[in-house]
Amino acid sequence: MVERVLVTGARAPAALDIARNLKAAGFEVHMADCVPARIARWSCAPTTVHRHASPVRESARFAADMRCLLDRLAPTAVIPTCEEVFHLVALAEADGWSDRVIAPPMDRLTRLHHKGQFADLCQTLGLPVPDSTTATDADALMMQATRGQVVVKPAWSRFGARTLIGPTPQQLARLSPSPDQPWIVQDGVRGEEVSLYAMAHEGQMSAFSAYRSDWRTRGGAAYVFEPLTGGVLDRLREMASTLASFVGTGQFGCDAIVDATCKPWLIECNPRATSGVHLFGRSAEFGRALLGCGIADPASDDWRNGVMLDSFGVAEALRTRRLSKWRTNRGRSKDIVSAPGDPLPPLGALMDAAGFGLRALASGHGLAEAMTADIEWNGQPLTPALWERP
Rank of each mutant, 00 (worst) to 15 (best):
Q251I: 06
D107F: 05
R288V: 06
V314H: 10
R327E: 15
G341P: 08
S245C: 13
A15V: 02
R67T: 08
D259V: 04
R327S: 14
G306Y: 00
D297I: 09
G26N: 07
V189W: 00
S195L: 09
R389A: 14
V78I: 12
L358V: 11
S275D: 12
I267Y: 00
G220Y: 01
T261P: 05
L382N: 04
I336L: 12
L233D: 11
P154T: 04
L344V: 12
L382P: 02
R272A: 04
P169N: 11
Q149M: 14
A299G: 15
G166P: 07
S195V: 10
G219A: 10
D310M: 14
C82G: 11
A25M: 05
Q149A: 15
A368M: 09
P46V: 03
R67M: 11
V78F: 00
D297N: 15
R327Y: 10
G379Y: 00
V29G: 05
Y211S: 10
M1N: 13
V314A: 15
F118Y: 07
E84A: 05
R330T: 09
V258G: 06
H201T: 12
E3V: 07
Q380P: 12
D352S: 08
C122Y: 00
T168A: 12
H114F: 03
R67A: 11
S213T: 05
G294Q: 07
V189S: 03
Q186K: 06
M66A: 12
A368D: 10
L125Y: 01
R319S: 15
A207Q: 05
F27D: 09
E316K: 10
A15S: 13
P128G: 11
E193H: 08
R100E: 12
G160Q: 09
S98T: 10
L290P: 02
G188V: 08
D65T: 06
P390Y: 01
D374H: 04
A94R: 02
A173W: 04
V101F: 02
G126K: 03
